[in-house]
Amino acid sequence: MGNITLDKVSKSFGATNVIQSVDLDIEDGEFVVFVGPSGCGKSTLLRLIAGLEDVTSGRIMIDGTDATGLAPAKRRLSMVFQSYALYPHMSVRQNIAFPLKMAGDDRAVIDRKVGDAARILNLTDYLDRKPRQLSGGQRQRVAIGRAIVREPEAFLFDEPLSNLDAALRVNMRLEISELHQQLKTTMIYVTHDQVEAMTMADKIVVLSAGRIEQVGSPLDLYKRPANRFVAGFIGSPKMNFVEGSEAGRYGAAVIGIRPEHLAISTTEGAWRGTVGVSEQLGSDTFLHVHVDGIDTITARTGGEVVLDHGDTVFLTPQPDKIHKFDAQGMAIR
């Protein structure tokens, strides 16, 4: 049904290689998130799958057939754009009905499908409004509505939540996950927000400079990052990296330890340091500790801390949670 396979897909704009020989298997019904820093090629990869860009080399298989040269409309995929790309002169109803109208469905079928989509997305009261009369979240839902009426093989989302405020973003995140549970259709979702990636994905694809760094389930990437880039990208706040002699004691060029895997004590421990800035979030506190002979290390602790700027603390990494990397940044297992 909705399985998509990328086979050595490359894309270059002129002389710059934006996507470099990407291999990827996406199973039917999976929720796959592409994540990576800005400019790493997430949108480009999504647009290649959508057919909005031509591949430079490689093959794209959709549902078992070669779709590399197929026009976007023929690939049976739906896309939700970052700017929503609603048609401003059409009402919500006409926007959602547009793909059905283009497919030549008759009025009764269109009305029924638009009605269904509007009900799923809570848009029934807004069907006769124009997009400019809607809030950001409602516009987002119209864009999703336009995508789901076509009953595509897979949905493609390009940073659909980046224009929304924080609270709404959390809401829409849940709604999209809920939609995925209901429809059980393959979804490919691009974001640079690793919280979105961790919470929504069945499978995360971490990209960097046009290459896949690692593919795996959220917890897989969290617990067993394949390299230093993934280790630093997944998890918030970032993993601490320690180089030099301290890393050498563990037989590695670099060791990494997450802020939540450091024990804090005022009396004794492995690393001695002074407290710098502490960020209090209520449930958590992040301490930025200047450790002697190492660097600034971030440590997570519970809500109430009695440490002040300049106090001396001791940090101790949990031994089984230390990640070891070689000189090339690859994980040592």
Partner: peptide, 14 residues
């Protein structure tokens, strides 16, 4: 006219 609108229409089968 935004390019994305044309692309969206293209994906919608227009």
């Amino acid at each position: 006219l935004s390019e994305e609108q044309k692309e969206a229409a293209e994906m919608d089968g227009a």
